[in-house]
């Protein structure tokens, strides 16, 4: 077991800066914050599904007369917005 990186930090840094103790300044996790990554991916999916629900083939025989793409798309957009808002309101500080 190497001892050089057994640092236990009480911060909640994102995935960067770990094990690299260059003594730089603290900064926000930004795009690397996983909440932003989740928000972005779900947001893209929400937009695609909503568009499919509006202009695509609704395939009502499969879904039992529900516009499934539209509803799922809207739900994904709401979830994405929550994650992006959470990351914006409580940003992570990464020790540089």
């Amino acid at each position: 077991m190497t001892d050089k990186s057994q640092h236990q930090s009480n911060h909640q840094p994102a995935d960067d800066s770990v094990g690299v103790d260059s003594g730089g300044r603290a900064h926000k996790a930004g795009a690397l914050d996983i909440r932003n990554v989740i928000g972005a991916l779900l947001g893209i999916y929400g937009a695609i599904l909503t568009l499919m629900g509006l202009v695509g083939d609704q395939e009502l025989d499969k879904t039992g007369d529900v516009n499934a793409n539209l509803w799922a798309g809207l739900a994904l957009l709401v979830t994405a917005a929550i994650f992006l808002a959470w990351a914006r309101l409580r940003p992570l500080q990464v020790p540089g």
């Binding site: 190497t2 050089k4 990186s5 057994q6 640092h7 236990q8 930090s9 909640q12 840094p13 995935d15 960067d16 800066s17 770990v18 094990g19 690299v20 690397l32 990554v37």
Partner: peptide
């Protein structure tokens, strides 16, 4: 994209195997 970003952070073997013990 995540893999590429993470790869730039892999500094030693503890990081590679245990993510540097830093996640909430």
């Amino acid at each position: 994209g995540i893999g590429w970003l993470a790869r730039r952070q892999v500094s030693d073997s503890v990081d590679f195997f245990l993510s540097g013990r830093s996640l909430p």
